[in-house]
Design a protein around this nucleic acid. Structure first.
Length: 227
DNA sequence: GCGACAG
DNA sequence: ATCTTGTCGC
């Protein structure tokens, strides 16, 4: 799948962002079963004044989950937080961090939703289409749809549906902890997305790539704050 | 019209 | 997301 970097830069006006998202949604492919070696976790942190977004990308190699490389980028926050348009707020910083990596990861694991989104085009799908790299969305709470009851043991999953359409899965990545919500971003199906999440979260609720990315983002923010 | 609403 | 200490529980 060819990259669509031509679909950036990012609009500043919510109405324009919505229009762009409506176009992007038609390019999303929630199918495929990649077996990624290099998984890049993508997350962001914000400056205290909320004026800067620190995007981070952390690459881990499968199946050892060893750290390979990381990168961060500080970008001015030019778009407000609007549920459904999250990609336009964090996307620029995440993409900037991704551009600073030495290697091209085989899969992007994004903190946020993929197709479990009102228009089936969450930040994970958005970044997948823009980069042409298979992507998965992992979120802490639902944005839309309803989740079935998840079994108590690690590995159990229950579908997230909206109007009868399966758009994701609630996945128990750790016994005793709330499930995470997984959905395909781009170039991967739901089963594949759940598989990758479970393979990368052997011990903690949050998959290792996202934990690493979170640490990098917070570190970058605190480093910038203390100078 | 009234809620709900990723980070 | 972020402002914020200690505290309850496994």
């Amino acid at each position: 799948m060819a990259p669509r970097r031509d679909l950036v830069p990012w609009p500043t006006d919510p109405a324009d962002a919505l229009a762009l998202q409506e176009g992007l949604r038609r390019l999303v492919v929630a199918a495929g079963s990649p077996e990624p070696a290099h998984v890049a976790g993508l997350d962001a942190a914000y400056s205290t004044d909320g004026g800067t977004v620190f995007g981070a990308a952390a690459v881990l190699v499968s199946p050892s989950l060893g750290f390979v490389e990381g990168a961060t980028a500080a970008v001015p926050a030019t778009f407000p937080y609007i549920p459904g348009l999250f990609a336009f707020r964090e996307g620029p910083a995440l993409l900037a961090a991704l551009d600073r990596l030495t290697c091209r990861p085989d899969l992007l694991m994004v903190h946020g939703h993929g197709i479990a989104h009102p228009r089936r085009c969450g930040v994970a799908s958005h970044l997948g289409v823009v980069t042409g790299i298979p992507s998965v969305g992992v979120a802490d709470t639902l944005l839309c749809g309803e989740a079935g009851e998840t079994g108590a043991s690690r590995g159990s999953a229950a579908p997230v549906t909206e109007k009868g359409e399966v758009i994701g899965c609630a996945v128990r990545t750790r016994a005793g902890a709330r499930p995470v919500y997984v959905s395909p971003g781009h170039l991967i199906d739901l089963a594949g997305a759940v598989r990758v999440v479970l393979q990368t979260s052997p011990r903690f609720r949050t998959p290792d790539p996202l934990r690493a990315a979170h640490r990098l983002a917070v570190l970058a923010r605190n480093t910038a704050a203390s100078r």
